[in-house]
Amino acid sequence: MALLEIRDLSKVYQRDAQRIPVFEGINLNIVAGEFLVLMGPSGSGKTTLLNLVAGLDEPTTGTIRVSGAEVTAMSRRDLAAWRSHHVGFIFQLYNLLPVLTAYQNIELPLLLTHLSKQDRREHVMTALEVVGLSDRADHYPRQLSGGQEQRVAIARAIVSDPTLILADEPTGDLDAQSAQDVLTLMQRLNDEYNKTILLVTHDQRAADRGHAIMHLDKGVLTG
């Protein structure tokens, strides 16, 4: 059974009388442990698809199931709780909270769990170790390089051990070397920790790290 099932998914924006379809009738399965790359030109709807999977946006029609749970049928409140357990999100612009240290940023998702302070500490330190930044725990985002910031963001995405990692152009704002480091890290998360990853990018080097590549163009998804 697929971990992620997308059935007949459509997203159509309605502007006055004008109907602007992003995509229509998309079907996609991702099995557990897969590393799927979604490519396509700007404006093709890659990020929209990712946001729909994360429950950040509502589809016009169709269903999305993650581990059997129907994301598209959940209330906004339930979605928040669901996301905190099942989705790790990595943004292009890292989106760390500037006033919190690396440690505190990574700890944020754990504040939504019932873990004790000691348990949270263990989880955060493990995540920092995985991304190779144990010595940067007390640094603020402004004291880190772009690559390090993105690794902290990845640590934040994996710290609560989510079902699915969604990454939206994670290397889009990084120099070549940092981008390679981040991609290597994501590949390790997939290989060593068996994390299921859906990566949206238009960077071919990033795409090469995945198991499979799908293309989204003009509203059509092709393998």
């Binding site: 669901w82 905190s84 989106n95 909270l97 939504l112």
Partner: peptide
């Protein structure tokens, strides 16, 4: 706004 979006994405409730 971006920070708020992150908090909401992480699963903090409105």
């Amino acid at each position: 706004a971006p920070e708020i979006a992150v908090l909401l994405t992480l699963g903090f409730r409105p």
